[in-house]
Design a protein around this nucleic acid. Structure first.
Length: 931
RNA sequence: GGGCGGGUGGUGGAAUGGCAGACACACAUGCCUUAGGAGCAUGGGCCGAAAGGCGUGAGGGUUCGAAUCCCUCCCCGCCCACCA
């Protein structure tokens, strides 16, 4: 009896051996094709959890496979070590962030090693290392030099009691209070550093050079949010120029008001004295809300009139200026024209605040409606309409009969208008809405085509029916009629109406023609707006890379000279329970001398967002101790760019955009020669708790990988994570399911090492057939490996193993084909389960190491099936099976099928209409009863 | 509200126009065993004694043939969310 599979012993032994023999040392070898395989670097939270394993183990398997395919693979690892949790630990437990971080790293290194991955530990990089953040600061200076780093006022969440800014995750609850003291948080304008990522917005929309998942490309495209339109200059009555951005210049004639963002710089100047108090109160209120809240769809459209008017440059209309929090200072120009007839938000705003609504784009669907109020016309109208063939619905109302008329098309509308006009009673009216927008009175017809018409119509309606007195605008009056509700507003493109000489311009040309005209007249110009904002990198934190800037009272903002880098993060700091950055109070750090004039000056005390550090780590990995630049260009020339990147999709709009931006800047600096950092990207899913929910301490469903490794060994944990389901989908953990993989590895152990109980089982297959099975398996497994389909790959290997377990008891056990089968099994399993395969490989007397062997090749001819089982259907139902040689000519297949015994009852008395032959799969005989 | 995924046995999943349920878990029965939370063998979508029928969220369509393609709807997950 051979010894049993003991993963703990084997794994420790081989990990030591690999380390000692330098199996995974990285060497730049120009004679071999390179492959840079990168996995997102972990944050050293202190414990390696199963999520890390889920991200890393399959990556390691793929990297090992590529190595077996002959690539010189670079598979580095490191730590994203700056960040808030270290500071929180300092405040709560009195541990210095540096100690906390580096102790965590030491622990995680040990845990990571237990995975048995082929990481290039000799190139490990840690972002909080002095020799790392020195270059992060260097990049800041290069950005600054190129005008890509700038400082401006920006709103931050601020706790007035703690006297500090808060990160977004430190603001709690609906009422937005401070996490620590419960005081309501306010928005405060602070000077902050930004990276000008918007300068690259256009280029970031181009994904033509990378093979990334569509999901990520879509998310980034939406995040960047490119919109074409025009900036149009309005003037206030006092002559102040106010620029608005619009994507719909074709609706300019329908602008009936203007809205500025509450923090718009012109508000101060424009606000009339008697409105100041109200405006200030509204601005304060708006400042208290985060952008997230302001953007909430459910929210009422609040706002206040500032007592000023602007002139619409295209038609001279005088329109009121409001401020409202649905307008963002950070998008477009921070000011909009309100076109309530064709923008849903403006429509709701106008209705709520009693602002007039003038339609200026015709409905493309040609629909119009008319509601004839009781007593508006002579009673014969009904009969006349009937005779004219115009359908209507009669509604009984307390005041009498009302008619609801739906009209489709120009002709119906004209016809209806003429008929109704002849039936109107004096003082009364009937309107047509949706299209036409005619108000038919006995003495004439008014069209809702201007503010003036609006007022006249409203006055007449109020005079004719006293109950209309309560309405502030014509549209408000119409909106009260349920029959009209869904036809009063639309945002489609369509022919322009009520727009002076542009009336009649078709929707397809309208935007272009109006924009061209605006440019000619000097009233506006074509403009592109992006939703992407510049990247705010300032953090009022201690544990981060200090921003290398000095403020001198004489010279102003002065960058730290490159030769003075790094700006050292001082370690002798006190952590205040308020959470304020200790750098602010560290006199030795803050006080410095100006590099230009030598006079007393102050350092910037903010540090950089940790996403800055992780935007270029793939370059630092190449040469983590290089000190002539961020990375060794020699080494870079060999390895870059990254060939394959893997990581969670949650970074789609943060890290994955930032690192693309960084790379484009590096390219413009001449540091790299390519446009994109990572050529291919794979997003793995999330490993969930046994209950299908996210693993978290509060749910109590966390599975500790260390315990699993102790019980089953790393190979089993690795394989099971890959077996659970498609890697890109993630899925729930199963503490029972892992047993299956453990059994599988035990079976492989038995298969290779143990003497079978019997050896004389009659062979079910010959040597040739066994070879065919081997090559067929290599073929499908290779395809699965290429496609990251680890779950089906393992299923194939299990099937293969199960088949071999039977063969093992037959005389074939001593054949050459058997040896080939076992060897192939171990080689295919090696990337997934590196330890057990190394052990079995050694015990078979093969040379060290299995991980330096070539991936098994398959013979295409052998991999092809010799015989196939084909289903034979009659009218789509399987009625028989037949085994035939593979790739038999269709005609032959048809003949063999038609004479099958089992089929005859189904064919008797039937006429064969056609026979469909799907090669090597099935035959479908289509029949119908014979006449 | 918008965008992208997804819905298949008791469970995780396989099959992306061609025999639905590979592989595994759990379960059942049997063998072995002093014992079994080890190992081995056998079984299984559902209904039915069988023949056969039904079956991939619901309904419709295209096709010789649909889990797969199209239309309508329901449910779940993720991302974005007043971006003018």
């Amino acid at each position: 009896m051979a010894e049993r599979y003991n993963p703990t012993e084997i794994e420790a032994r081989w990990q030591r051996r690999w380390e000692e023999s330098g199996l995974y040392r990285t060497v730049e070898d120009p004679s071999r094709p390179k492959f840079y395989f990168l996995t997102m670097l972990p944050y050293p939270s202190g414990d390696l959890h199963l999520g890390h394993w889920y991200a890393m183990a399959p990556s390691d398997a793929k990297a090992r496979y590529l190595r077996m395919r002959g690539y010189n693979v670079f598979f580095p690892i490191g730590f994203d070590a700056f960040g808030l949790p270290a500071e929180n630990a300092a405040i709560r437990h009195g541990i210095h962030p540096k100690i906390w971080t580096y102790e965590n790293i030491a622990r995680m290194r040990r845990q990571l090693r237990s995975m048995g991955a082929m990481w290039a530990w000799d190139r490990e990089a840690i972002t909080s290392d002095l020799e790392y953040y020195r270059w992060t600061q260097w990049f800041f200076l290069q950005f600054y030099k190129r005008g890509l780093a700038y400082r401006k006022y920006a709103p931050v969440d601020f706790c007035p009691k703690c006297n500090t800014t808060l990160a977004r995750e430190q603001v709690w609850g609906e009422d937005r209070h401070c996490e620590r003291c419960g005081t309501p948080v306010i928005r405060k304008e602070l000077e902050q550093w930004f990276f000008k990522i918007t300068a690259y917005a256009e280029e970031l929309l181009d994904f033509s050079q990378i093979d990334w998942p569509e999901r990520v490309r879509t998310m980034q495209t939406n995040w960047i949010g490119r919109s074409e339109g025009a900036n149009v200059v309005f003037r206030s009555e006092t002559g102040e120029a106010i620029e608005v951005f619009t994507t719909r210049p074709d609706t300019l004639w329908g602008a009936t008001f203007m809205v500025l963002a509450p923090e718009h710089p012109l508000v101060e100047k424009l606000t009339a004295a008697e409105h100041r108090e109200e405006v200030a109160a509204y601005q304060y209120q708006a400042a208290r809300q985060s952008e997230i809240e302001r953007l909430s769809t459910e929210k009422e459209k609040t706002g206040v009139f500032i007592g000023a008017y602007a002139i619409n440059p295209v038609n001279g209309e005088r329109i009121p200026i409001w401020i409202a929090d649905y307008v963002m200072m950070t998008y477009g120009t921070g000011a909009i024209m309100g076109v309530p007839a064709h923008d849903e938000r403006d429509f709701l705003f106008a209705l709520k605040h009693g602002l007039p609504i003038i339609p200026v784009i015709d409905r493309p669907d040609g629909r119009a409606r008319s509601y004839v109020r009781p007593g508006a016309t002579r009673p014969e109208l009904e009969e006349t309409l009937e005779r004219a063939g115009i359908p209507f619905v009669v509604e009984e109302e307390p005041a009498g009969k009302a008619l609801c008329v739906a009209l489709q098309g120009e002709e119906a509308l004209d016809n209806y208008v003429n008929i109704v006009q002849a039936h109107i009673l004096p003082g009364q009216w009937v309107e047509v809405v949706g299209r036409g927008w005619h108000f038919l009175f006995a003495e004439g017809r008014w069209t809702l085509d201007s503010l003036k018409a609006e007022q006249e119509i409203l006055a007449r309606c109020r005079a004719g029916r006293p109950e209309m007195q309560k309405y502030r605008t014509v549209m408000e009056m119409l909106y009260d009629i349920p029959f009209y509700r869904d036809i009063l507003f639309h945002a489609e493109y369509g022919p322009m109406i009520h727009s002076g000489r542009f009336s009649g311009t078709p929707g397809e040309e309208a935007v272009r023609r109006v924009t061209a005209w605006l440019e000619e007249e000097g009233l506006g110009r074509f403009a592109i707006a992006y939703r992407l904002r510049d990247w705010l990198i300032s953090r009022q934190r201690y544990w981060g890379a200090p921003i290398p800037i000095i403020y001198c009272p004489r010279c102003g903002t002065v960058p730290v000279p490159e030769e003075d880098l790094p700006v050292l993060l001082p370690e002798d700091v006190d952590f205040l329970p308020t959470g304020e950055s200790p750098l602010k109070f560290h006199e030795g750090f803050r006080r410095t001398t100006c590099p230009q004039c030598g006079g007393p000056a102050e350092r910037e005390t903010d540090t950089m967002d940790t996403f800055v550090c992780s935007s270029w780590y793939q370059y630092r990995y190449l040469s983590p101790r290089y000190d002539q630049g961020p990375f060794d260009p020699e080494v870079a020339r060999y390895w870059l760019p990254v060939d394959q990147y893997t990581g969670g999709v949650e970074h789609a709009t943060m890290h994955l955009i930032y690192t693309r931006f960084f790379t484009k800047v590096l390219r413009d600096m001449g540091l790299v020669w390519f446009d994109e950092p990572m050529l291919r990207l794979f997003n793995q899913g999330t490993i969930l708790g046994e209950d299908g929910e996210k693993m978290s301490k509060s749910r109590g469903n966390v599975v500790a990988p260390d315990d699993l490794v102790e019980k089953y060994g790393a190979d089993t944990v690795r394989c099971f994570l890959m077996f659970i389901g498609p890697w890109e989908e993630g899925g729930p953990w199963s503490s029972q399911g892992i047993e299956g993989i453990y059994r599988f590895l035990n079976r492989v152990w038995t298969l290779v090492l143990e003497e079978p109980e019997r050896k004389d089982r009659p062979a079910e297959m010959g040597e040739e057939a066994l070879r065919r099975l081997v090559h067929r398996t290599i073929k499908v497994v290779t395809a699965d490996m290429e496609a990251f389909h680890f779950n089906t790959l393992l299923a194939r290997l299990m099937e293969f193993t199960n088949a071999l377990m039977k063969v093992r008891e037959t005389p074939l056990r001593t054949s050459a084909a058997w040896d080939e089968a076992v060897e192939s099994l171990l080689l295919m399993l090696a990337p997934l389960a590196p330890h057990i395969t190394e052990e079995l490989w050694a015990r078979l007397g093969r040379p060290y190491s299995i991980h330096e062997q070539s991936w098994p090749a398959y013979d295409e001819a052998l991999a092809a099936l010799e015989e196939v089982d084909v289903a034979v259907q009659v009218n789509g139902r399987v009625r028989a099976q037949m085994r035939i040689p593979a790739d038999l000519p269709e005609e032959e297949v048809r003949l063999r099928a038609l004479v099958l015994e089992r089929l005859q009852p189904y064919l008797a008395g039937q006429e064969i209409v056609r026979v469909i032959v799907v090669p090597n799969r099935l035959v479908n005989i289509v029949v119908r009863p014979a006449r």
